[in-house]
Design a protein around this nucleic acid. Structure first.
Lengths: 168, 168
DNA sequence: TCCAAAATGTAGCATATGCTACGTTTCTAT
DNA sequence: ATAGAAACGTAGCATATGCTACATTTTGGA
């Protein structure tokens, strides 16, 4: 009795991990549907049929929750990317066209909204979005680098960053 | 003494109107620079070297303040549009290309950010952004309608809305 | 000069929100 | 069956934020 929960560190058992993962997915769903990252924990919990108390039971704090949800979204995006990926290294202009075309897909509309929201908040220094934005940008650049047929690594990185900036 | 301000209706004198307009412009500047519409009144006031008390002295409430600032931004955009406007009515595809090219101008980047923010918040039902978003969309459609060389008015409106949706 | 209106400061209220303390119930392993 | 862990509820705190009440200072016209 009185396990003194204290609501600190989230549970670490495998069962809990699974529930946490399921929750993360549903949170990601809400983010895609409602396009918001600044939603109050109480509202978010209500949509999920639970309580803010439970969200903070499975996640350390709101920042970690958002990070997990965004990571889940990034994972989904990667999966779509896998299937529609043009394989092999190509010249910069080609990579840029392909990427722009991919991001223009109607299915990705909600992703774009969330991505834009994160970048906006991150650019404004809001925690935890600054860190998330950096990570997302880093990942995007890495993905672009892999597709470029440039010999010099530094050059690859420069061009990848340029492509990303142009597309944004 | 004790003018019983009560902080309700903003002042209506011509001097006050001028000061209010100047304030509105500076608020619009902050929005362009920081790209935010959800900034707390205290923070916004601090950036302007005044107090939240003063903002609510010149504006009825935060909603009106935001509306005024967005209106100011829309006015600036219109001015840019005037100078770079392609005159006369053109076929839909042409209008769409022109509009897309115009919106892609690098100078308009901050405007796009604010516009996107407003649409996102409006789509989510947040006040006062829902109303502002509707007004902005209405204005954009009207502007597009004027440039279309279609005879039927209903058809013009339909096509204008379609162009806007495609560009968004 | 004098006074009313405009402008501004200070303090605080009501609500929202992230988070915590503390309790009870439910499950699970022995 | 029972003890301990896990899961969950309830209440509340601390802070942030929009906004108001009240007081004071500043200003412009008579």
């Amino acid at each position: 009795m009185t396990s003194s929960d204290s609501s600190h560190r989230p549970p670490s058992g495998p069962k809990s991990q699974a529930k946490r993962a399921a929750l993360t997915g549903r949170i990601a769903d809400v983010m895609l549907a409602e396009g918001l990252a600044g939603i109050p924990l109480r509202d978010l919990a209500a949509r999920l049929g639970t309580s803010d108390r439970m969200l903070l039971y499975y996640f350390e704090d709101k920042a970690e929750l958002v990070q997990a949800a965004v990571a889940a979204l990034a994972g989904r995006l990667d999966k779509v990317l896998e299937t529609s990926r043009v394989s092999g290294r190509r010249p910069p202009a080609q990579v840029m066209r392909d990427t722009a075309a991919f991001l223009a897909l109607p299915d990705l509309r909600p992703f774009r909204a969330v991505w834009a929201d994160i970048l906006a908040r991150g650019g404004r220094g809001e925690t935890p979005f600054a860190a998330i934005a950096r990570a997302q940008i880093e990942g995007a650049i890495a993905s672009l680098e892999e597709q470029l047929d440039l010999a010099d690594a530094a050059e690859r990185r420069r061009v990848a960053a340029a492509i990303l900036a142009a597309i944004e």
